[in-house]
Design a protein around this nucleic acid. Structure first.
Length: 201
DNA sequence: TGGTCCAGTACCACGACGTC
DNA sequence: GACGTCGTGGTACTGGACCA
């Protein structure tokens, strides 16, 4: 049996596209030998801010885990569903191998999944090819996936992240999305069998 | 002139949470 | 308390454009 997360599949997809990345790089990632950057920690802290926010909360300057975020520059309302951090496990068989797909979405409501991303570069095209939304739409059996993109900027000599822009970007289920996920998972399983068989329990 | 902003690209550890 | 599992995408860098 092998457990596969949406993050793993997305990282594997990007690894396939990168001619210069080595097999060892991918193995290191899957075995979790990599340290998180400050940006990742900032993203985590911002996530926590959105998780703990309540309906009708007016967020201006908030502090979380040592990071300060200034949302006063946003002149819009952000809809945050009540169902947050929703986890799913789904078992299936691919190429004769028992597979457990696992994933956690930031928020979910009827037929729609939400994922929050703190980014310095607001580029929706970065997410078009992503396996993440495909996996979640397939596994959670939903029709719409929305990335809530928050563009941040950290001025030099300041310890605050200015949240400049909020941009929701949605993707929709299409015919054959399950096949795309299965094909990528099949390729991933093949890689694991060849290079990291210890991940198969 | 200095500060800000943008584009593109590759890659990897920690906190939180659930389970035992 | 120990252990296993998951998502967190931004950093660093370069070159160039823009603005006050």
């Amino acid at each position: 049996m092998i457990r596969i997360s949406a993050t793993q599949l997305e990282s594997y997809r990007r690894w396939l596209l990168n001619d210069e990345s080595t097999i060892d790089n991918m193995i290191d990632f899957l075995l979790k030998r990599t340290p998180p950057t400050e940006a990742m920690r900032a993203g985590l802290a911002f996530h926590k801010v959105l998780e703990t926010a309540k309906y009708n909360d007016e967020l201006a300057i908030v502090e979380q885990d040592g990071f300060k975020f200034d949302l006063s520059g946003l002149d819009c309302e952000i809809a945050l569903p009540e169902a947050k951090e929703f986890k799913l496990e789904k078992q299936t068989v691919i190429d004769g191998e028992l597979v457990t797909f696992v994933g956690v979405v930031d928020a979910i409501k009827v037929n729609e999944i939400f994922d929050h991303k703190l980014t310095s570069q607001l580029n929706a095209e970065n997410y078009i090819d992503s396996m993440q939304w495909r996996c979640y739409l397939d596994w959670f059996d939903c029709d719409k996936f929305t990335y809530n993109l928050f563009q941040s900027y950290k001025p030099a000599n300041q310890d605050v992240y200015l949240i400049k822009t909020f941009l929701p970007v949605s993707f929709y289920r299409y015919e054959g999305i399950d096949l795309d996920v299965r094909n990528m998972a099949s390729s991933f399983i093949c890689f694991v069998k060849n290079y990291i068989p210890e991940l198969i329990k």
